[in-house]
């Protein structure tokens, strides 16, 4: 095997490998090398059970951003969800963010119901109106106990 040939094929291998890796990270992992395309807002929820980082944020069924972080707010003991919203989407301050499920065992996502206010949300501000996950268990329980009484 010619020395230069070996080097060429090794170089080719590494280039293809790195391209595959980049594709995985950029397309599938949604790593944004240009963070500026998004602006952050956040909201507090009583329960976001099942919601994961990277979940979709939709308005009228169209993706407008992603969930960038899910954590617990230690003071209020509520779930704090941070969103990255597309720069070209402006949200008014009275929008309603709710945790929804796609399909019966599908993934959780955030649905945003547009508001009517003229005041727009600035980068880093909080969404006040939130709706938490639909907890099927508690609904069922309520139903059973109501019957008992």
């Amino acid at each position: 095997m010619n020395r230069r040939k070996t080097e060429f094929y090794v170089g080719l291998f590494v280039i293809i490998g790195v391209l595959c890796t980049l594709y995985l990270f950029v397309t599938l992992g949604s790593v944004n090398f240009s963070r500026d395309k998004y602006y952050p807002v956040h909201g507090f929820f009583t329960s976001v059970s099942g919601l994961k980082t990277g979940a979709r944020v939709e308005m009228a069924g169209v993706k407008i951003g992603i969930v960038s972080n899910v954590s617990i707010d230690k003071k209020q003991l509520l779930a704090k969800v941070e969103f990255s919203i597309n720069k070209d989407i402006e949200l008014s301050e009275d929008i309603i963010a709710s945790v929804k499920t796609s399909g019966i065992i599908g993934q959780k996502y955030i649905d945003i119901l547009p508001g009517g206010s003229d005041i727009m949300l600035e980068s880093g501000e909080a969404i006040y109106n939130t709706e938490s996950s639909l907890d099927i268990e508690s609904i069922v329980r309520k139903f059973i106990f109501n019957n008992d009484q």
Binding site: T21, L24, F25, T27, L28, G29, S30, V31, K52, T53, G54, A55, R56, Q107
Partner: peptide, 14 residues
């Protein structure tokens, strides 16, 4: 595919 895979999954694989 795109929405389910997170960066952590990919780095974990690596």
């Amino acid at each position: 595919v795109i929405s389910s895979v997170s960066v952590n999954d990919i780095t974990g694989g690596f």
